[in-house]
């Protein structure tokens, strides 16, 4: 089954061998941004997760950063 890795430091995702990679916001809050208000923050998170679903729905032949 395909796996998408959502993390902030892309070179680490690459070195551990993730094939589908979504760069995220920051180490302590990869899928959030405490400086935004709640609605904006959730919209940001949704955008990233939608990107992850796109990555999972896309065939790749090598390590790919979406």
């Amino acid at each position: 089954m395909p796996v998408v890795h959502m993390a902030s430091i892309v070179p680490i995702s690459q070195s551990v061998g993730a094939n589908r990679i979504i760069p995220t916001v920051a180490i302590p809050h990869p899928l959030g941004d405490p400086t935004l208000d709640a609605a904006e923050e959730k919209a940001l998170r949704r955008k990233l997760v939608e990107k992850a679903l796109t990555a999972l729905s896309t065939n790749v032949s090598e390590q790919t950063v979406f």
Binding site: I27, P28, H29, P30, L31, G32, P34, E41, K42, R45, R46, L48, V49, E50, L53
Partner: peptide, 23 residues
């Protein structure tokens, strides 16, 4: 290994359960 403040305020910031439930 990281500042826990933000994850403890809203754990969805690390594990996006809220958004996946919407989807």
């Amino acid at each position: 290994g990281y500042d826990q403040t933000y994850a403890n305020q809203d754990p969805d910031r690390v594990l996006p359960v809220d958004v996946l439930r919407d989807l």
